[in-house]
């Protein structure tokens, strides 16, 4: 079972910026224990571009599709046998990243 694990940051109350070494160590453990599928941090939401090509021609819009105080700062994809395992890892991830974490199953 695969889970999308989103790291949520808050513009008005951002998490600390010194988490990189701890996250690297956590990633190594995820790989060693067989949970790691993919991981990546994301650039600022200001750098996003939204494309809508449902009409006559593609329309490009600068910025994220939704402006909000809370935003997606990075993601993981984990392979875990069930939600309890994913939630346990997510609890650790939240400490490691100093940010909120959302766990959502893939279909």
């Amino acid at each position: 079972m695969q889970y999308l694990v989103s790291v949520i940051d808050d513009k008005s109350n951002p998490g600390s910026t010194d988490r990189r070494p701890a996250i690297s160590a956590f990633n190594e453990r995820l790989i060693a224990e067989g949970y790691w599928v993919f991981a990546g941090g994301l650039a600022d939401t200001d750098t996003a571009t939204v494309i809508d090509n449902r009409g006559e021609q593609a329309v490009f819009t600068d910025g994220p599709f939704v402006e909000s105080k809370e935003y997606l700062a990075g993601i993981w994809v984990w392979e875990a046998p069930d939600l309890d395992v994913a939630l346990k890892l997510a609890a650790e991830a939240s400490k490691v990243c100093d940010r909120k974490i959302e766990v959502r199953p893939f279909l």
Partner: peptide, 14 residues
């Protein structure tokens, strides 16, 4: 079902 909440006893620690 979708998130696969398991059908089993929690671990002793939990």
């Amino acid at each position: 079902k979708a998130a696969r909440i398991p059908y089993r006893m929690p671990s002793v620690g939990d």
